[in-house]
Write a protein that binds this DNA or RNA. Structure first.
Lengths: 144, 144
DNA sequence: TCATTTTATTTACCTGGGTAAATAATCACA
DNA sequence: TGTGATTATTTACCCAGGTAAATAAAATGA
């Protein structure tokens, strides 16, 4: 019988461990994990409004502002005014677009190596169980 | 087929969500999640050296120093010099000891509610799969 | 003994999560 | 049209993770 606090403690630990590994890998590109998350997002969806980004990533607006300011300084992205003058539209720089495939591949390899002990079925099951956490009694979470 | 980045993205999200919930609950005690982790630790093991704490929690020493300083200010713990004058021994205050059982119970209830969609077997399996992450090929992780 | 190395803790500074409140632009509608 | 509400972003300030380097005490060993 496993105690609930053991589960949450280990969940926390593993996430810290993973973040550390990702940051270690990204160091050579002078990037950090949450910056990478945003780059990945922009690669997937193309130019986005700041609001689109933080809503998609499920973080707060100020957190995203701060990270984007840093990324603009280090020339990963640009932020231009939208037709609605309140909005900022975020775009990858050409330098970012050039490096993206390389970084994407090395992150992919790292992630695969972190999951190498789990079969596809186990990964799917893990994903399913993970998604159930926080779902209230009576509700149902459907994983697509 | 689930992409590895989906798994890690959701892992990250869930941990943020859980931490937010715990912080929300702890707000009434003017406590924060990682302070609670330390209290829980001291409750389990009794007085500990700072080094024991950060090694057990698997975080860095400066992180622990900072949190302990805050907890000392808010009267959750004391730090006294050990016989080895480099060491600091951390103890719960009597106020902390009084409140601990109450807080422990409400955290326990929160954790159970977060896991309410998972049976004991699923929880155990989740724990097992979680532990496999980061384990290198060829190595083996044994869960006790 | 005393110089060197190791160990425990701290300081300074970085990223990245959060909240509350301030701007600034747009929208809604009387 | 113009006022009030809403929306997008920012600013200021928490907590919590990290690294690098400083300090101070203890351990080691020639």
């Amino acid at each position: 019988m496993i105690s609930t606090s053991d589960i949450f403690h280990n969940l926390h630990q593993q996430v810290r461990f993973i973040t550390k590994e990702v940051n270690e890998l990204l160091k050579q590109y002078h990037l950090y994990s949450s910056q990478w998350t945003i780059l990945y997002c922009l690669d997937q969806f193309g130019p986005m409004k700041q609001t689109d980004i933080w809503k998609y990533l499920n973080v707060e607006a100020p957190t995203t502002t701060r990270t984007l300011v840093r990324m603009e300084k280090s020339n990963w992205i640009t932020r231009t005014e939208g037709s609605d003058k309140r909005e900022r539209i975020v775009r990858l720089t050409s330098e970012a677009e050039d490096l993206l495939p390389i970084i994407k591949e090395s992150i992919q390899k790292l992630e695969e190596s972190l999951l190498s002990q789990l079969s596809s079925e186990e990964q799917a099951h893990f994903y399913y169980l993970l998604k159930q956490i926080g779902v209230k009694k009576g509700e149902r979470s459907i994983v697509y």
